[in-house]
Design a protein around this nucleic acid. Structure first.
Length: 221
DNA sequence: ACCCAGGGTCATA
DNA sequence: TATGACCATGGG
């Protein structure tokens, strides 16, 4: 049974560095993190392109936009009514807190709690922001990660989010460059899942030498 | 036609 | 604490 570190190394060797998050600024990372909730990234790209074209890809602009206008711009990303509210909740909070420069000064644990206090920001979204916008060494747990680790046998699969996060983070606790490891591992797992989608009957050419089928929901073993 | 995507919130038991 | 309903577009 491979270790978390071996999984990281094998995926990295096979797919190469992913250079995440695909965004032009920390704020754009945060917008994308909210828009990609349970949504394909290709749809998020369209929504972000709309925001950029409308010149409202900033906290102030989004906070001051009529909710119905914002919803229309982000329509391609799905759940557009609720996500318009979430984006505005977040942007107003972001401005109240003093913006990026003020947030960057906060301790990681405190910043995480603050992010989680925003309605519409859950654990995965907060951790996406912490790693890819604030460069803090936290590991993001998503559905793919649960499937992969449980099918390999490293976890049961029904553990709580925090339990899993700490378990993986502990595996790299003494790693000098664990931020880069957490950054890559999450991105690699997502890319790996996309590479082995529903079109294939098995995890063909799996770099983990294991038919993990991360891109499939069923098949729990 | 069906499945699900780089989740989160809220009501209910 | 633990399910279930709900949110909604777009690609395979």
């Amino acid at each position: 049974m491979p270790t978390y570190r071996q999984i990281h190394d094998r995926l990295l060797g096979h797919y190469g560095p992913q250079d995440w998050w695909p965004a032009n600024s920390p704020f754009e990372v945060m917008v994308g993190a909210i828009l990609t909730q349970n949504t394909a990234w290709t749809n998020v790209e369209k929504a972000i392109a709309n925001l950029r074209r409308a010149k409202v890809l900033s906290a102030k602009a989004i906070a001051n936009l009529p909710a119905t206008d914002l919803a229309e711009l982000i329509r391609p990303s799905g759940y557009f009514n609720i996500k318009a509210k979430r984006l505005q909740n977040f942007c107003r909070w972001y401005l109240e807190q003093g913006g990026l420069s003020a947030l960057k000064k906060r301790d990681t644990a405190e910043l995480r709690d603050a992010l989680l206090s925003v309605n519409g920001v859950g654990p995965e979204t907060a951790d996406d922001m912490l790693v890819y916008a604030f460069e803090r060494p936290v590991f993001v747990i998503d559905a793919y990660t649960r499937r992969l680790f449980s099918r390999i046998g490293l976890i049961a699969g029904d553990e709580g989010y925090e339990i899993l996060r700490h378990q993986v983070e502990q595996a790299f606790a003494r790693d000098k460059s664990r931020l880069e490891r957490f950054n890559e591992l999450h991105a690699l797992i997502v890319i790996h899942a996309k590479a082995h989608c529903r079109k294939q009957p098995a995890c063909v050419g799996c770099p983990l030498s294991f038919d993990c089928q991360v891109g499939r929901d069923e098949n729990t073993a």
